[in-house]
Amino acid sequence: MKNSSSSCSSRKSEKQNAYHVIHKLPPGDSPYVRAKYFQLVEKDPEAAIVLFWKAINAGDRVDSALKDMAVVMKQQDRAEEAIEAIKSFRDRCSKHAQESLDNVLIDLYKKCGKLDEQIELLKQKLRMICQGEAFNGKPTKTARSHGKKFQVTVKQETSRLLGNLGWAYMQQTNYTAAEAVYRKAQKIDPDANKACNLCLCLIKQERYAEARSVLEEVLQGNLPGSGDLKSRSRCEELLNELETLKSATMEDAFIVGLDQLMKHWNHMRSKRLPIFEEIISYRDQLAC
């Protein structure tokens, strides 16, 4: 009887473990675990946010609870509230969690259109890399995207941050600063996406020949990501824009040239006008 009870308990435990694995839930029944259940299984973000708050106040996995709550708030268009939450409670989080919280803050600033704050935080993170303080002093860090883990080097992270900084400058229409940042990013870790953004910077500055030269690198497949369908599609859109701008520039040049020709013709005509008047007067006299 004892063995049967033990076997039943074991099967129940295995079933619970399988459930947690399938739904990517942490084990247990704490406020944080329940919050994740409402976030991932029930798809009830409001209930999840309430439970994440409870987890933070109870000291239950505060690092993860604060970050996850901010992400859910962003999805619910509560980005301003998420920013305040991180600023208010990040001192309860470990040193190891601060970098991840900064990354979430950058996305939140971007969502709210707080460009100055976004730029300042990106600069701060770049300064930390220069001072050797990024990744908690390690050469790589583990990142996650679409449920998959992968390693990120300091070089890749530097280029990524520079790319984000360049885009923030673009939103401020500071194309000169954006160009400088994108060029630096391309020297460190080039890719097709940043090349397209650099091309856009040059187009905004009406430097069309340089913009085309940057795009050629992507079209020729010389950059990582050149074969990506999205990158090639964007590259073609930029090329079409360049062709349109080139035609418009040629048309403008023709109109300017025509205006100058008309001014010259009018000037010459005004000089000859008295002569024409004398000829007409003489012709009229002969007619009489």
Rank of each mutant, 00 (worst) to 15 (best):
S4C: 06
S4N: 10
S9F: 13
K12H: 10
K12V: 03
E14P: 04
E14L: 15
K15L: 13
K15M: 14
N17K: 09
A18R: 02
Y19S: 09
H20L: 04
H23S: 01
G28V: 02
G28I: 02
Y32D: 01
V33K: 05
V33L: 04
R34H: 00
R34L: 02
Q39Y: 14
E42H: 00
K43H: 01
D44N: 07
I49W: 07
V50P: 02
F52Y: 15
K54F: 08
G59H: 07
R61F: 15
D63Y: 13
D68S: 02
D68F: 01
D68V: 02
M69L: 03
K74T: 01
A79L: 07
A82M: 07
E84M: 04
A85Q: 00
A85N: 08
D91E: 15
D91F: 15
R92P: 12
H96G: 11
Q98M: 10
S100G: 13
D102E: 05
V104W: 07
I106T: 11
L108S: 06
L108P: 13
C112E: 15
K114Q: 03
D116W: 07
E120G: 06
L121K: 11
L122C: 10
K123G: 11
K125R: 15
G132R: 05
E133I: 01
A134N: 08
K138H: 14
A143W: 00
R144D: 08
S145D: 03
H146M: 01
Q151T: 15
Q151W: 07
E157H: 14
S159W: 04
S159E: 12
L162P: 15
L165T: 10
W167Y: 12
Y169I: 08
Y169G: 08
Q172T: 02
Y182R: 00
K184Q: 09
P190F: 12
A192P: 11
A195D: 05
N197S: 14
C201D: 05
C201V: 04
L202I: 01
K204V: 00
K204R: 14
Q205N: 08
E210H: 13
L215G: 02
E217T: 12
V218S: 09
L223C: 12
P224V: 05
S226I: 01
S231Q: 14
E236N: 09
E237N: 13
T244N: 13
M250Y: 13
D252Q: 13
I255G: 08
V256F: 10
H264V: 08
N266W: 03
R272A: 09
P274G: 09
F276V: 14
I279F: 06
Y282N: 11
R283P: 09
R283D: 12
D284S: 02
